[in-house]
């Protein structure tokens, strides 16, 4: 469960101080499925960074299951990321020189999983996203949808508590978009994840039971019955 209290984030861009987040309070219960939307530059990505432990707030607290990520050391934060948080990025962010299976394995490396087990788990994860036949393909040899599936397998292979997706369909055409959304939905249900997704896509937002909208650094949560 996430508990955000009075989270602000300021950074300087040239001479200007940008208030990316201006006092965000947000509670995300375990197993929730939250869509974050809002205009470009509104603070969506900044919020995702806070949730993922990729950056620290200027003030306020970001608690994940009672631990304030804002106060953790870099090493502990790295550990939290490696164990509990899975990421899916807009542009897939696969390692171009590694094949599908190896890419998935990179998520298990910081956990100290032995090579043989790593390979096995990676293959299984790829099978669960429908890429069982493409273990040895390089990212450049796969379509965008396939690449994103590899990325989803990579995010989930370590069985995290939280799955954070940053515009996971932003680089995909419509047919691919639905396919990926289906995969993500299935995974969320199967793994009992807390699934937080940033998106521009209003079609996706409309389907979501809970939508958080960020405008000018402040958040409003809309619940649909």
């Amino acid at each position: 469960m996430y508990e955000l209290r009075g989270v602000t984030k300021q950074y300087r861009r040239g001479k200007e101080t940008v208030h990316a987040l201006a006092g965000v309070d947000l509670t995300i219960p375990d197993g929730d499925r939250l869509v974050i939307q809002g205009p470009t530059g509104g603070g969506k990505s900044t919020l995702l960074q806070m949730l993922g432990g990729l950056d620290r707030p200027t003030s306020g607290s970001v608690e994940l299951d009672g631990t304030d990520l804002a106060k953790l050391s870099e090493a502990k934060l790295t550990k939290v990321r490696s164990e509990s948080i899975g990421f899916v990025f807009q542009s897939f962010n696969l390692i171009p020189t590694l094949n599908a299976q190896e890419n998935v394995e990179t998520a298990l490396v910081p956990l100290g999983v032995k090579a043989a087990e790593r390979r096995e788990r990676a293959a299984e994860a790829l099978k669960s996203v429908g890429l069982g036949e493409r273990l040895t393909h390089l990212p450049s040899e796969m379509s965008g949808g396939q690449q994103q599936r590899v990325a989803i397998a990579r995010a989930l292979v370590k069985q995290p508590k939280v799955l954070l997706a940053d515009e996971p369909t932003g680089n995909l055409d419509e047919s691919m978009r639905d396919e990926i959304m289906d995969v993500l939905e299935t995974m969320w249900k199967e793994h009992g994840l807390t699934f937080i997704m940033v998106t521009h896509d209003s079609a996706i937002a409309k389907k979501a039971p809970r939508v958080a909208t960020i405008r000018k650094g402040t958040i409003t949560v809309t619940e649909r019955a």
Binding site: G52, L54, T78, R81, A107, P110, R154
Partner: peptide, 8 residues
């Protein structure tokens, strides 16, 4: 990305 995945 590797750092986000928890690589030290």
């Amino acid at each position: 990305t590797l750092k986000a995945l928890g690589w030290k």
